[in-house]
Design a protein around this nucleic acid. Structure first.
Length: 790
DNA sequence: CGGAGCGGGATTTTT
DNA sequence: TCCCGCTCCG
């Protein structure tokens, strides 16, 4: 370890040093006990910018919470003067609890500890008028966003099939992640989406404003705008936040980075902001949703004089696991460099097991789990981490057969279920009569005879008069524009809403909600439904009502659910966990099973196709995250055959397996004589960077050459040559896509040819990524290295 | 208003 | 292959 700052480090400021020293001299506060020197330094280096590079399992959360407790205990800031940002509500919740545990009841909640988004909401509610919003603006969820975009696309006379709202939503999210307002969208990008990308984006933003609504991305962007346009407001927050803390810094996107930088910039003052960012560049796995690893890599340049502290002592895993993970991640280029050191024993080696197909893979893992269980190990301490969710099914099937209790982590969340969204739409339309999207969602749910034509009429009247749909509906009932039947239905609904609104302050919100769901016929709708999931949905609705009781107002509840989309389902039973690698970040288990280590699946082909080397490196980080979740045992698996899009395909062992250090792995002979060799050399045969896999040769299982398994493997090898995953120009992509971000040699309007998609015309250029409208398969994003001019 | 029949797509996902 | 969302028809 070559730490340039030996510890204990002198704390830069005399004021702080003095206090900290005194604190230490008095045997130090209890919370500092038991921290290692680096951790202690991370806790006590309070002045100026600090970057804490916290490797997996190095006690990051502990450092974070202790640091906050330290600041509060020393009396350097009051709780309201500390900004602490996390990415998820879960992380924020945990941090709150742990700080409470550290410093006891003396300090009540920290108002500025939360997610980027929740903090932005808090700021925006105070200053809404300054960015053209009303104080009670609504926050749209993804559903609303898509429906609104659909309307925008329809209004622009585009074919919804060819130009799906989802795709536009992705573009817009991408721009917002980069803090690009419609006028700032680069011209290459702007012409994406039927050449109307920026135009549609602008229309969408205008619609949001008239709806007095924002989407998630706007929360950041509008706050940035607020800061930029109102120096006094910004200055107020800058001086308020004496200490700033950001967790998972490697996951920040450009907008979040700009937001932070605005707050951390203290114009006119000599003093540097006390900004502490904590993260791990090796665990950056969210590039695809806008995270910029660059933010963490650039930290020292962004914040001159920054102190960088590395936490490399891992308290979680045995050293075989750590060495395997470290060796693997060392294959990445763009990293700050960090090596985890184990603190205990070597433990078991990481195992690599080959299965014939995904079914056998599931069976082997099932057997292994049962065996561990017989040895007295808890199922809670075991997890299966998959790359893609389709892999889960095989395991679920297997576990059901075995009667093995399991839980799936992730997946559709409580508040994303249709019945919950419907119920919430009723509440929103009651509390906020101008919430058109909510009103529209349930206007004919349950069916009450308000058909498309009627909805369109209400919509048009609302748009042309600039009034909310609820009001337009009311006015239409007094006109002759609707057929008698529809008019009655509309009148009934509007009267219902008016009545419910009148009851808002008369009773607890959960009671009112129950009345609304009853009187609207919504509950009845599900009671009548005979489908198998209907009872579950009714149960969910009850759960929703129950959870509402904890809030003191309907508005408070609505605010909460628009930002917090998860519910802590306290599941106490002993179960195996099944989740994606992404969902596993931050968790740990005694034993971790990692199936599906095959080329094309992991690393995922699409990731490499779309992002070249950067994509591959992110996949490798994902592998690193997976391995480092294991405390005592990590078991890797790959199958030689897997069904992809319905077709059985021969597959090759993942290159990541070859990147593991031999000394720390053990290849398991499953006894079915199907050892290695089943997978031919990878790549398109161009003999590129990646030589043959050591899993290609019978070493170290030379004894299996003449076995049926080997014979079958040979056949398999021949078949593998026709594997479309392998035919993909992976090696080419690897080389040519090395530098993302360089300008492309192609221009909009050019005709190109793509091996897979055929001929097409370039509609947008973003660095080396092209959006090509293919003659036969429609618009796609491809790397420029995969096409040729025509 | 519901069901059949179709075409397209098929990583990862928080707020 | 399988799942979804949408359309069309009765």
């Amino acid at each position: 370890m070559t730490d340039p700052h030996p510890s204990p480090a002198p704390v830069p400021s005399a004021r702080q040093g003095g206090i900290a020293a005194r604190a230490r001299a008095a045997a130090g506060p209890a919370y500092l006990q038991g921290l290692n020197p680096e951790q202690q330094r991370a806790v006590e280096t309070l002045d100026g910018p600090v970057l804490v590079l916290a490797g997996a399992g190095t006690g990051k959360t502990r450092v974070l919470t202790t640091r906050l407790a330290h600041i509060l205990t020393l009396g350097l800031a009051r709780p309201g003067q500390i900004l602490a940002v996390t990415f998820t509500n879960k992380a924020a919740r945990e941090m709150k609890e742990r700080i409470g545990g550290l410093i006891g009841e003396s300090v009540e909640g920290m108002p500025w500890l939360g997610t980027f988004h929740s903090i932005c909401v808090k700021i925006l509610r105070r200053h809404a008028e300054l960015v053209g919003l009303k104080r009670d603006f609504t926050i749209l969820d993804v559903d609303d966003q898509i429906r609104l975009l659909k309307q925008v696309i329809q209004a622009a006379d585009l074919d919804e099939k060819r130009w799906p709202a989802r795709q536009l939503a992705n573009f817009i999210d991408g721009w917002k992640n980069k803090a690009l307002t419609p006028d700032k969208v680069p011209s290459g990008d702007a012409h994406a989406f039927a050449g109307k990308g920026d135009e549609l984006y602008a229309t969408y933003q205008a619609r949001l404003k008239t709806l007095n609504a924002v989407d998630f991305g706007d929360l950041l962007l509008e706050t940035i705008r607020l800061f930029k346009e109102n120096a006094d407001v910004l200055a107020d927050f800058q001086s308020r936040f004496r200490y700033m803390l950001v967790d998972e810094y490697q996951d920040t996107n450009v907008a979040q980075y700009l937001w932070l930088r605005l707050l951390a910039q203290r114009t006119g003052e000599d003093e540097k902001a006390n900004l502490c960012c904590v993260g791990d560049d090796d665990q950056s796995i969210y590039g695809w949703r806008g995270a910029e690893v660059d933010n963490i890599l650039r930290f020292e340049a962004d914040f001159p004089g920054a102190v960088v502290i590395r936490l490399e002592r891992n308290y979680r895993s045995t050293s075989n696991i750590l060495d395997a993970a470290s060796h693997l991640i060392a294959h990445n280029e763009g990293r700050l460099g960090k090596t985890l050191h184990g603190q205990g024993e070597a433990g078991d080696k990481v195992t690599v097991t080959c299965a014939w197909d995904s079914e056998e893979e599931a069976r082997l893992i099932g057997e292994e789990i049962e065996q561990l269980q017989r040895k007295g190990e808890n199922l809670d301490e075991m997890a299966i981490l998959v790359r893609a969710s389709f892999q889960m099914r095989e395991f679920e099937d297997r576990f059901v057969t075995l009667g093995l209790p399991y839980r799936v982590i992730g997946g559709p969340r409580f508040y994303e279920r249709a019945e919950i969204r419907d119920a919430i739409a009723y509440l929103r339309a009651t509390a906020q009569p101008a919430d058109d999207l909510a009103f529209e969602r349930i206007i004919n749910t349950p069916r009450r005879g308000i058909g498309d034509v009627t909805v369109r009429t209400i919509h048009d009247v609302a748009r042309s008069r600039g009034i909310p749909m609820m009001q337009a509906a009311l006015e239409l009932t007094e006109s002759e524009d609707l057929k008698a039947r529809a008019r009655n239905a509309v009148r009934n609904l509007v009267t219902d809403f008016a009545r419910w609104r009148g009851q808002l302050d008369q009773m607890p919100q959960s009671e009112l909600a129950a009345i609304i769901l009853e009187e609207s016929g919504y509950t009845e709708m599900w009671q009548r439904e005979r489908s198998p999931d209907a009872p579950g949905r009714l149960e969910n609705l009850k759960e929703l009502l129950r959870s509402m009781e904890e809030f003191d107002s309907l508005t408070g509840f609505l605010e909460h659910i628009s930002l917090v989309m998860d519910t802590e389902a306290g599941d106490q039973e002993d179960k195996v966990s099944l989740m994606t690698l992404h969902a596993a970040k931050g968790l740990e288990f005694g034993t971790v099973f990692l199936p599906g280590w095959e080329e094309g699946l992991f690393p995922h082909q699409r990731s490499m196709d779309e992002n070249g080397r950067a994509g591959l490196e992110e996949e490798r980080r994902l592998a690193y995250v997976g391995l480092t979740r294991a405390k005592r045992r990590a078991a890797l698996y790959f199958a030689t055959n897997r069904r992809i899009h319905g077709l059985w395909q021969a597959t090759a062992a993942s290159r990541f397996l070859d990147e593991l250090p031999e000394a720390n792995i053990e290849v398991i002979d499953t006894g079915s004589l199907r050892t290695s060799g089943a997978y031919g050399p990878r790549g398109s045969g161009s003999g590129g960077t990646y030589g043959n896999s050591r899993f290609d040769e019978a070493e170290p299982f030379a004894s299996t050459y003449s076995t049926p398994g080997w014979q079958r493997a040979k056949k398999n090898k021949a078949r593998a040559a026709s594997n479309p995953w392998k035919e993909a120009p992976m090696l080419e992509g690897e080389v040519l896509a090395r530098s993302t971000g360089t300008a492309s040699a192609y221009a909009r309007g050019e005709r190109v040819f793509h091996q897979k998609f055929g001929y097409g015309e370039i509609t947008a250029v973003d660095g080396n990524k092209l959006t090509v409208d293919f003659d036969h398969s429609g618009p796609k994003r491809v790397l420029d290295s995969f096409v040729e001019r025509h």
